[in-house]
């Protein structure tokens, strides 16, 4: 039997990002935050002010062992976002490559702080 979960280690250069969406009625989807991996290895998040405050207090994962992650944890924080926000109501994307991030930013899809 082979292990289908085994994949080559992905390359996530600075600029890679995760977006977190709030799912609403019907097919409504609102961008809550975009967290981008920085050159110094940390992550920086922009978006809804309340949600960003949540993120900066840390997100905790239960699996495999309970641990809290902060934006300072960089890539691990982006991975944690994917695990923490996976309900039907708030959902984080996979880690996206920087080119897509730059493109999205330039088209103005990042919501400003409110």
């Amino acid at each position: 039997m082979t292990n289908p979960a085994r994949q080559p280690a992905p390359n996530h250069p600075p600029g890679s990002f995760v977006e977190v969406y709030r799912i609403g009625r019907g097919t409504e989807k609102t961008l809550l935050a975009r967290c981008v991996l920085q050159q110094d290895g940390t992550a920086r998040c922009v978006g809804d002010a309340n949600f960003i405050r949540e993120l900066t207090t840390g997100i905790t994962l239960a699996y495999p062992t309970p641990r809290s992650f902060l934006p300072a944890d960089g890539l691990a924080f982006l991975q944690a976002l994917q695990s923490a926000y996976q309900s039907a109501y708030i959902n984080a994307t996979d880690i996206q490559p920087p080119s897509a991030g730059e493109q999205a930013a330039s088209t103005g899809t990042v919501s400003s702080n409110r």
Partner: peptide
């Protein structure tokens, strides 16, 4: 953690 091997969804 950084490689994301443990991310489950």
């Amino acid at each position: 953690e950084e490689r994301g091997d443990l991310v489950v969804r």
